[in-house]
């Protein structure tokens, strides 16, 4: 595991990313509404929804590839994305300010 020094590498940098991270904290992003086969770490319930980048976590090997016995490289940028619960669930019964944070890889995100 090569460590990437400095905060530019994210809170817990794992690898050097193939390309610079596209998004920054505060950016509004949407999760792609895609449903391919294989092992995926983007939960079904968040696909198609928009949120805000809460932090850049660093670049990590792609779990979709690791699951298939490949090395998952080049590492992909990973972000914590914050969503409003009331926007994710039509029947959300909590408070307007309640949020859900999820780690999502860059290739699942588009600018919103």
């Amino acid at each position: 595991m090569q460590a990437v020094a400095g905060s530019a590498g994210g809170q817990y940098p794992s690898h050097r990313p193939a390309a610079p991270a596209r998004f920054a904290p505060g950016d509004r992003v949407r999760v792609r509404d895609s449903a391919p086969l294989g092992h995926i770490r983007t939960p079904f319930y968040i696909r198609g929804h928009a949120g805000v980048i809460e932090r850049y976590c660093g670049a990590f090997p792609n779990p979709e590839e690791l699951a298939q016995m490949r090395d998952g490289l080049p590492a992909q940028p990973l972000y914590r994305v914050r969503f409003l619960e009331s926007e994710v669930w039509p029947d959300y019964a909590g408070r307007a300010g309640d949020t859900i944070d999820i780690e999502i890889f860059q290739h699942w995100l588009e600018r919103a």
């Binding site: 809170q11 817990y12 794992s14 770490r41 983007t42 939960p43 976590c57 990590f60 779990p63 990973l78 914590r80 619960e85 909590g94 408070r95 300010g97 309640d98 949020t99 859900i100 944070d101 999820i102 780690e103 999502i104 890889f105």
Partner: peptide, 14 residues
């Protein structure tokens, strides 16, 4: 009610 809930779904490496 005045306290927001923050749910964290650990989907990746953290």
């Amino acid at each position: 009610d005045e306290v927001a809930i923050r749910v964290h779904d650990s989907t990746a490496d953290m």
